[in-house]
Simulated assay, not measured.
Amino acid sequence: MSDFVERFKKGAKALTDALGPGQYEVANIKVICPHCKNDVFEEGSAQLNTAGATFLNLDWLNKSAVVLVCTRCGLIQWFGESVDKID
């Protein structure tokens, strides 16, 4: 039974590490905050709305972007392509 608990703890830690802040790269280049030179970010997403789609109530058709928020200064960087977590 204790083996199960230990494996469960390891799995829970891996999940929280994967969802928490981390280091990222885009196009094989490590992302660094241009303001404070930090290299740890929170990942999020944002929808790229267009006036036409919003007017027609079709916002779900718009593309989305990946945003990385610096954990030190809060600067937000937007990426149209996918980002890779390197932790």
Rank of each mutant, 00 (worst) to 15 (best):
M1R: 13
M1P: 06
S2R: 14
S2P: 10
S2Y: 13
S2K: 13
S2N: 14
S2Q: 14
D3Q: 11
D3P: 02
D3Y: 12
F4Q: 12
F4G: 12
F4N: 13
V5W: 12
V5C: 13
R7Q: 10
F8P: 10
F8E: 15
F8G: 12
K9W: 10
K9A: 09
K9F: 10
K9M: 10
G11K: 14
G11Y: 11
G11V: 08
A12S: 08
K13S: 05
K13N: 07
K13H: 06
K13L: 08
A14Q: 05
T16I: 12
T16R: 13
D17F: 00
A18Q: 08
A18N: 09
L19N: 07
G20L: 00
G20A: 03
G20K: 02
P21M: 09
P21Y: 12
Q23T: 02
E25Y: 03
V26Q: 10
V26G: 05
N28Y: 01
I29T: 13
I29Y: 07
K30F: 03
K30Y: 03
K30N: 05
K30V: 06
V31R: 00
V31D: 01
I32L: 06
C33V: 00
C33D: 00
C33A: 01
P34E: 00
P34G: 01
H35S: 14
C36H: 08
K37A: 10
N38A: 11
N38D: 11
N38Q: 09
N38R: 10
N38H: 12
V40P: 08
V40G: 07
F41A: 02
F41H: 01
E42R: 09
E43W: 01
G44Y: 00
G44F: 00
G44W: 00
S45M: 13
S45R: 13
A46Y: 04
Q47F: 15
Q47A: 13
L48K: 13
N49T: 12
T50P: 05
A51T: 15
A51N: 10
G52A: 15
A53C: 14
A53Q: 14
T54C: 07
L56W: 04
N57H: 06
N57P: 03
D59V: 06
D59M: 10
D59P: 08
N62M: 08
K63T: 11
K63Q: 12
K63M: 08
K63I: 08
S64F: 05
A65L: 13
A65W: 09
A65N: 15
V66A: 14
V67W: 00
V67F: 03
V67C: 01
V67S: 02
L68K: 02
T71N: 06
T71C: 07
T71S: 07
T71Y: 05
R72T: 10
C73M: 04
C73E: 02
C73I: 04
C73S: 07
C73H: 05
G74Y: 14
L75C: 01
L75K: 03
I76R: 11
I76V: 15
Q77V: 03
Q77F: 03
Q77M: 09
F79T: 07
F79V: 07
F79D: 04
G80C: 05
E81L: 08
E81V: 09
D84L: 14
K85G: 03
K85I: 00
K85V: 02
K85W: 01
I86V: 10
I86F: 03
